[in-house]
């Protein structure tokens, strides 16, 4: 790009930053006034969880989280629409394969722990799902072309599981008179755990499938021959 133009853009962006910093500073100096924090903490015991962030994500603002699962699904559907995935990597050597045999079960186990602990400490469906997705990534890097994912039919059901359980729970609650995503008193804890479990599976499968990067194939393609240069593949 033209040097003068990029200099001009730089100056304009710097001016914008100065204005934003000044505005931000003058607002912080004001009295914070009414905050959501005290209200959120006050009603925490009614939410069924004791971790305030989980309470916001799965109870106060559960609707946002439902749509966020929709965003994740939209991205995966977009990726699938672009055609079949590229072939996977070559089979891992013995050292990497041994490590994968250890790391993948550990990641799944830790994911389960994070899911459970999310109720009262930092953790929850997204962290757990990210770990499941990471397990898939590791498997594909080690030569499992489909990242350890099941068949296409199963993948399709698994990626919609989170948003599906979420929406159906919401609608069921609406039809029984509580209101959309309004958990009945005392039931919140179990409903949240149910939704989070479904969401964890969906997120993990979605992330791994997005990493595979193409529409699932009916049969897993055979691993490419060993002559493929690993470094050329790793560039992708």
């Amino acid at each position: 790009m033209n040097r003068d133009l990029s200099l001009l853009i730089g100056i304009l962006v710097a001016l914008l930053a100065v204005v934003l910093l000044w505005v931000f500073h003058s607002t912080l100096a004001l009295d914070p006034g009414q905050r959501l924090a005290s209200l959120a903490m006050e009603r925490l015991p009614e939410t069924g969880v004791s971790n305030p962030v989980t309470a916001v994500l799965l109870n106060y603002r559960a609707y946002d989280t439902l749509l966020e699962l929709g965003v994740l699904l939209a991205a995966l559907l977009g990726i699938w629409s672009l055609g079949p995935p590229r072939p996977g990597f070559q089979r891992a050597g013995p050292a990497l394969a041994a490590m994968v045999d250890w790391v993948v079960p550990l990641a799944i186990l830790t994911g389960g722990y994070l899911l459970w602990v999310g109720g009262h400490a930092p953790g929850g469906a997204f962290q757990a799902g990210a770990l499941l997705g990471a397990a898939g990534v590791i498997m594909r890097l080690a030569g499992h072309a489909n990242a350890g994912l099941p068949s296409e039919t199963w993948q399709r059901w698994l990626v919609v599981l989170g948003a599906g359980v979420f929406t159906l729970t919401g609608l069921l609650l609406a039809f029984t008179g509580y209101g959309f995503l309004t958990y009945p008193p005392g039931q919140a804890k179990w409903l949240i755990l149910l939704i989070e479990t479904a969401a964890t599976l969906a997120i993990g499968v979605t992330l791994a499938a997005a990493y595979v990067g193409g529409r699932p194939q009916p049969t897993a393609p055979p691993p490419p021959p060993l002559v493929t240069s690993a470094s050329a593949e790793a560039d992708r």
Binding site: P32, R35, L36, A37, S38, A40, M41, P52, V53, A55, V56, L57, Y60, R61, D64
Partner: peptide, 10 residues
């Protein structure tokens, strides 16, 4: 004030 969990969730 207690830290606000809402921005964290956002």
């Amino acid at each position: 004030l207690p830290p606000d969990p809402v921005p964290h969730a956002l």
